[in-house]
Design a protein around this nucleic acid. Structure first.
Length: 420
RNA sequence: GGGGGAAUGUCCCGAGCGGCAAAGGGGGCGGACUGUAAAUCCGCUGGCUACGCCUUCGUAGGUUCGAGUCCUACUUCCCCCA
């Protein structure tokens, strides 16, 4: 591939967003003319998106930022009713239309942080494929769309092949997912002149299906861009913290925890992530790249703060950074650590340590059994004192002058219990 | 249509003569070492009102003092014959 001429592809290329493209020159030309109306689809399977989705949202951001075209965030209100079989062994249990609707509402907020919505020609729009998918007539659909798909070929796609090879059930319902996604692409072209679909590298097959369907239905040339699948340098799938997925919604994962997630990046990933997940200029990133040894920690802090600021706002990011500084660098007690309120009466009565760490209170551990094991391996601390007695009890006397009890699990996770 | 196999700890892979909370990996978590990193080493890896109790081996029954293990039926998948 030749050097890109458009700002859009320049940025995407130098920041490492591109895994595969269907026609680099063609996309480049359309971007220069500013007519690269582009969509990315998001399923509504959960109440929040997670870091894995962030990559494609960033691509939409750059699309808009460089004036390459109009971003379309497609909510899969319709396709979610079918379920994408990609990469999963089991069928997901079907969500009710109500759940999907709730999820959709919950997902929306994140996009506005990174792309500008509105009515102008370059403003982003959000559409829901339920709008057209739920109105389809089966026989008509089969005749117009179904005839363009070869089952022989569909069977060869990874999403399908994986299930078949592993002897797992693949329902006819899920089998149709890729057809619907292809149809979406063509429909978005008809409605909004959309000519590019972006997505994760696992979506390549599905996107190309859409391009093929477009050609056969007489649309103009459609394009595909995929981004790499996110993994850490040591090969692990990215997007999990110790406490679970890295959600983008603030009510699912606090700004502090989000900041911590980025702070704990492996050395080898810092620069790559700065390019992908922050808006810092390349020259600035190159400066950070020069840091070595323990100095890399400075780059990690920048990464954490910038990434958090994008999603949760600058102020929340600064607070998270400061909380971390006090907690980790000074070993002091920061009152802005995640806090759980407990009735003062339960301290008067005495609260079992194991219970305090468990799912009812601090939620640092999933069960008291797990808490018990952690006591044995010295992983729990109360006010920085290692817990040695699993039958220990927290009382009012354990409250610090600030009126809290600091519970720590491992070296990195801390929760304050505040008596009220 | 006939014959032969398979399903195990709800993260995955995988052993399991009738006494089994069930071998071993991987992954995950904790500890040590570090820099809130990686690599390495050690420990842990069903639940609970906890020297005891409860729930787990595809589903439902049965035999037995006792079943993951034996029998019957069912479900799903694989292989061979037609």
């Amino acid at each position: 591939m030749n050097a890109p001429k458009s700002d859009f592809l320049k940025v995407l290329t130098e920041r490492g967003f591109i895994h595969q493209t269907s026609d680099f020159e063609g996309i480049d030309a359309a971007a220069i003319e500013g007519r690269l109306t582009t969509y990315v689809g998001y399923d509504c399977t959960g109440p929040s998106l997670h870091v894995g989705h962030l990559l494609s949202i960033m691509m939409l951001h750059w699309l808009q930022e460089t004036g390459a075209g109009k971003p379309i965030a497609l909510m899969g209100g319709g396709t979610t009713r079918v379920g994408d079989p990609s990469g999963k062994d089991e069928s997901r249990k079907l969500l009710t239309p109500e759940q999907i609707e709730d999820n959709k509402t919950s997902l929306k907020g994140v996009f506005a942080r990174l792309i500008t919505f509105g009515d102008g020609p370059r403003d982003a729009i959000m559409v829901d494929n339920a709008e057209w998918l739920t109105k389809l007539n089966y026989i008509e659909f089969l005749r117009d769309v179904g005839r363009h798909f070869s089952v022989n070929r569909m069977l060869s796609f990874d999403s399908v092949k994986l299930r078949l090879e592993r002897e797992h059930e693949l329902s006819f319902l899920e089998f149709n997912y890729m057809i619907l996604q292809a149809y979406d692409f063509v429909e978005l072209h008809k409605r909004y002149g959309c000519i590019l679909q972006m997505g994760g590298s696992d979506q390549w097959g599905n996107i190309v299906n859409g391009i093929d369907l477009g050609r056969r239905s007489g649309t103009s040339q459609l394009y595909a861009v995929t981004c790499p699948l996110l993994t850490t340098a040591s090969g692990a799938k990215m997007g999990k913290t110790a406490s679970g997925a890295v959600w983008l919604n603030a009510d699912m994962l606090s700004a502090y925890d989000y900041w911590q997630f980025w702070r704990n990046t492996e050395d080898a990933d810092v620069i790559r992530f700065l390019k992908l997940f922050t808006l810092l200029g390349m020259d600035e990133i190159h400066k950070l790249a020069a840091l070595e040894g323990a100095g890399v920690n400075e780059a990690k802090k920048v990464l954490a703060t910038e990434a958090t600021a994008l999603l949760h706002g600058r102020e929340a990011a600064e607070v998270a950074a400061e909380t971390a500084r006090q907690t980790f660098e000074q070993g002091a007690l920061s009152e802005s650590l995640p806090t759980v309120e407990i009735p003062a009466s339960s301290l008067d009565a005495g609260l079992g340590v194991l219970t305090a760490f468990g799912p009812e209170y601090a939620k640092l551990l999933p069960s008291t059994g797990e808490a018990r094991r952690q006591v044995k391996s010295g992983g729990l601390r109360v006010n920085d004192q290692i817990v040695t007695d699993e039958r220990g009890v927290l009382r009012t006397a354990n409250l610090t002058p600030e009126g809290v009890i600091k519970l720590s699990f491992g070296k990195k996770r801390h929760v304050l219990l505040r008596a009220v």
